[in-house]
Design a protein around this nucleic acid. Structure first.
Lengths: 250, 250
DNA sequence: CGATGACTTGACTGAGTTCAAAAGCTGTGG
DNA sequence: CCACAGCTTTTGAACTCAGTCAAGTCATCG
């Protein structure tokens, strides 16, 4: 029961998949859990040493990297606090999950987690739904990459990171944004970028020089300000979301 | 039992998810099924009229389209014979599934299918695994779009279509290709493209003119030949896969 | 046979890449 | 505290691939 209580104080309780489970399943899950700290650069799953972690992120950001044969990396997804990390049912995952920042996670033993999915159908159902959502998100992001200009891509990523790090429902998709009744309309907010320029470039299918230039442009327009040590202040959130959609004014 | 027998003669039996089910579940599924013909352009799910089809493709190709606010379309996925079409658990899917060609499908009543997933955990498990695979594939494709040149993209898509239409395990991913023991190494093969130049462009994040020029280039190199009415002959499969990876020679 | 739509080809432009160098941080050791 | 090494990031200039605009050709069908 102490474990269960610990979960009730969990920072990401409201977002994490745990909240969608029945009490019984959540208890069983809590029993097999252990908090861990993981430092930036560590591989969570995939890669040569076939790591295979299952975890929920408490704090920090994980990047999903596709390592190309020519050595270049493509980041195909980011995972934020409250999200599940892991690839069930597969030994050699085609991509590598790596800690982009120092991490605090709620880790499960891989085998036990997969077994629990077998016996607890509500857990499996929850994971299934999340995966379908991830698939939608990945496709959304794909069309972002495919057609948008460098400035739009950078702005989109910044909006994504800003909203995710705030714990708000981050939906870059236009339809969803229109449907939702526009929550707290924050104009300014400050945070640390979880990614280097190189990583941002790898996310967006750009070169780091291009990313740097776009940052410069956004700074010149008074939309963002960069601090030291990856610090970023968004001074005009509305302007940023406009750039994200290719609107130069208004 | 007649239904079950009909399934045993199904053209896509070996690839379709049905084959992974227990006999009992497959029977129940077969009971709620009806063959349908759908003509090119019809919407299977998503879109304004909120269509919601669940089906397995027997013949033809389905495109998953992301309609942008500015009117441009981005194709974020293609589905081939043997694959499942549908988006469970959601009313307004963020994207539209549309018949790219005339279709023959094995359709289920939406509600009944979702209900059957509830009661038959092997069905749900199968669908879950497929979705995870789709997610991997989508991310693979994303990194294709993000970094490759026009020629590489076109070649990649042609390889994908060629292999999928042949019923072979089409894995553009390099690791998987290396792992598999390289099945029948066909040098030549002929088929009809399921997509127009415009649609190919929408798949690859290019303009139709660029696609057309790349086709011309591949023709000039003697790698493909185009016939009338979307006919395509791949005369040098090895050459094509090389272009797909950016290798100009060898 | 002419009309409609799909595809091809050409010439020009421009956003983003590439190569190269300079400027900022961060941490270490004298 | 400063100097230096090893980074990441910024900035500059030339180049290139794909986009854009505009004709032109080809197929299919009434």
């Amino acid at each position: 029961m102490t474990l269960r209580i610990r979960c009730q104080h969990c920072a990401v309780r409201s977002v994490a998949p745990c909240s969608a489970l029945t009490a019984g399943t959540a208890d069983e899950l809590a029993r097999m859990v252990h908090r861990r700290r993981i430092s930036a650069g560590q591989v969570l799953y995939g890669g040569p040493n076939k790591a295979k972690t299952f975890a929920i992120i408490i704090d920090g950001v994980v990047k999903l990297v596709n390592v190309q044969p020519d050595g270049s990396n493509q980041i195909v997804g980011l995972q934020f606090p409250g999200e599940f990390v892991g690839r069930p049912f597969v030994e050699g995952a085609p991509l590598v999950a790596e800690a982009a920042t120092d991490l605090e996670v709620c880790a499960f033993s891989g085998g036990a987690f997969e077994a629990l999915m077998q016996s607890r159908s509500d857990l499996e159902r929850t994971m299934f739904k999340r995966t379908l959502d991830d698939l939608d998100a990945a496709r959304q992001w794909m069309s972002m990459i495919a057609r948008k200009t460098a400035e739009e891509r950078v702005a989109n990523l910044l909006v994504l990171i800003a909203t995710k790090l705030r714990g708000e429902p981050a939906d870059v998709g236009v339809e969803a944004a229109a449907a939702a009744p526009a929550a707290a309309p924050v104009a300014e907010l400050e945070f640390n970028l979880p990614l280097s320029r190189t990583e941002i470039a790898e996310c967006l299918g750009l070169r780091l020089e291009t990313v740097s230039r776009q940052f410069a442009a956004l700074k010149a327009e008074g939309i963002i300000a960069t601090g030291r040590r990856r610090g970023l202040k968004v001074t005009d959130m509305a302007g940023l979301t406009n750039r994200a959609q290719g609107l130069m004014f208004a």
